[in-house]
């Protein structure tokens, strides 16, 4: 059945309309969850506000278990969906740099757009920085090509990497996420108590 577009259930001409609508939903939810505020976002790293962790992990958990069930019900052909290819060196370097950018800027790209939309000047500067950063990367690409293509493993999934089944990974992820939620509630209670 799914993915609807590549299986021909939806005319590709509708692609951009769908993109726009999904973007509206995405932006609305991010903003409504409070992701347009950099201080709320940064709170996850200092233990005073875990909204990022709660929203993000819940979203991953729901989407992941949803895909497992969609796959089981044969509603989606899981072999047709895009799997991000793994370049080990590149993704580790990128992740570390992104973490640094996150703690300095207090936004990530998607959330900075929502900040811009409601008139946060720091989000505007973050977005400008984003353009600058990508421009720097692209211009310096010949120098860093080795890192970018380093450690290629192809489009592997965690099932390939750890040799476990889809269902088991989803279950472990759920258990880990719920444990994290309980843990951060406890941390937040302590941190905010100390401050007050």
């Amino acid at each position: 059945m799914g993915p609807l577009i590549s299986q021909g259930y939806i005319n590709p001409e509708w692609n951009f309309v769908i993109a726009l609508l999904l973007g509206v939903a995405f932006g609305y939810i991010l903003e409504a969850s409070g992701f347009s505020s950099s201080r709320r976002l940064a709170g996850v790293f200092y233990g005073y506000d875990f909204v990022v962790l709660r929203v993000f992990m819940t979203a991953v958990m729901v989407a992941m278990i949803g895909l497992v069930y969609f796959d089981y019900m044969n509603w989606i052909d899981i072999s047709q969906i895009f799997i991000l290819p793994t370049f080990l060196t590149s993704v580790i370097v990128g992740g570390v740099i992104m973490g640094l950018g996150f703690i300095m800027g207090g936004y990530c790209p998607g959330t900075s757009f929502t900040g811009v939309a409601i008139g946060k000047l720091d989000a505007v500067f973050f977005t400008a920085g984003l353009f600058l950063g990508i421009f720097i990367f692209s211009s310096a690409f010949p120098l860093i090509e080795g890192i970018y293509y380093g450690g290629e493993l192809g489009p592997v999934t965690v099932m390939d990497t750890f040799g476990i089944s889809r269902g088991l990974f989803a279950f472990l992820f759920i258990v880990a996420t719920i444990s994290a939620f309980i843990l951060v509630s406890w941390i937040q209670k302590r941190v905010t108590k100390n401050e007050v």
Partner: peptide
Amino acid sequence: LIILILTLGIGALFFPEKSYIK
């Protein structure tokens, strides 16, 4: 909600592994 999502997760444990040959 915790019980609900855990139940869904436990259910997923028993799904047969599909082979993804095209």
